[in-house]
Amino acid sequence: MHKHLAFYGNKFHVMHYLLLILSWFIFYASHTVLASSKLKSFLKVKWGKAYKWYRLLYTMVSVLLFLVIVGQSLLIPAEIILSRGDLSSYFGYMLAAFGTIILMKSSKGYSIVRFLGLVPVKEEKEQLVTSGLYGKVRHPLYAGLILVFAGYFLFSGSITAAIHLACLLIYLPAGIYFEEQNLVEQFGESYKKYQSEVPAIIPRWK
């Protein structure tokens, strides 16, 4: 009886983990597709003036999918694969705090209201940012997310946290590739030069 319950319990957990992985896949895939310059160009023609609300739609889809992932994570019973101790918890909090600081500094100078699409914005020529953290790495936001997810795994030690981190690391190469294709299309040789001089995520320490 106990063996059967354990079997079904493990099967239940595996299904939850697979659904969590699938949800992350959908989240990252939608992020890449919705950020595609080709899709944006197509919708500009099709939607006309209504395209000014595209950023808001993009934000709503991302937030909805992220809330689904959060809900799934809360429903999965915590299964620990990394023993938690004072040292791992300390490093976990430190990494998460450092990652949060990087995220905040990377977003400095951006209008949150405009970024979320809460107000319609007229088409403006964007400038390539290469100063501050962007002078050290091309994708400081991704670097910050890696530190936050890694920190969460260290002080949580759960399979769920490990899946969050693994899905992010698996997605990043493809995510960065397609994002930079859009940036090369947008900024041309300026971005190619920037690519050759600045690393993607890990800074070069001199």
Rank of each mutant, 00 (worst) to 15 (best):
G109T: 02
V68C: 13
Y152F: 06
Y8P: 00
I176L: 13
F91I: 12
Y17L: 06
A150P: 05
R204S: 07
V113C: 08
F178N: 00
F115G: 04
K44P: 02
L116A: 08
G175D: 02
T100R: 03
S190H: 13
F149R: 04
F153C: 10
Q72Y: 12
E126I: 04
Y177S: 07
V148C: 03
I21S: 13
M94Q: 12
F155D: 06
L57S: 03
K125D: 13
Y17T: 04
W53A: 04
Y194G: 09
G71K: 13
L5R: 10
L19K: 09
I80N: 02
Y191N: 04
E124R: 08
V121H: 09
L74E: 14
F25W: 14
S106C: 09
S73R: 01
A166Y: 04
E185N: 05
L19M: 14
L18T: 01
A50H: 02
G109I: 03
M104V: 15
L118E: 11
C167G: 02
G151H: 08
W24N: 01
F178E: 01
P77Y: 11
P140V: 05
L141A: 13
C167A: 15
K108I: 06
S30C: 11
R84H: 14
A174D: 08
S73M: 04
V148G: 02
F42Y: 10
L133F: 08
L18K: 02
V119W: 09
P173N: 02
R55L: 02
G92C: 08
Y171N: 11
E179H: 05
W53L: 07
M15C: 11
S62M: 13
H16C: 15
H4R: 13
H13P: 00
L19G: 15
E179C: 05
K122T: 02
I69G: 10
I146A: 13
W53K: 05
F187Y: 13
R204Y: 02
N10E: 10
I201D: 04
L87C: 07
A166M: 12
P199I: 03
S62N: 12
Q181I: 14
L56D: 05
Y142L: 14
Y58N: 05
L5C: 10
A50P: 00
L34D: 06
K38Q: 11
V148M: 09
L118V: 12
S131N: 11
L95G: 01
Y177K: 14
V68Y: 03
T130G: 03
Y17C: 02
I69E: 08
W205R: 05
I202E: 03
I202R: 05
F149G: 03
P203K: 00
V68N: 14
V198C: 07
I163H: 08
G99S: 01
L65Y: 05
L22Y: 09
A6P: 15
L87M: 12
S89Y: 13
T130D: 06
P140S: 02
V14K: 12
L19P: 06
L75G: 13
F7A: 14
E124K: 12
V33C: 03
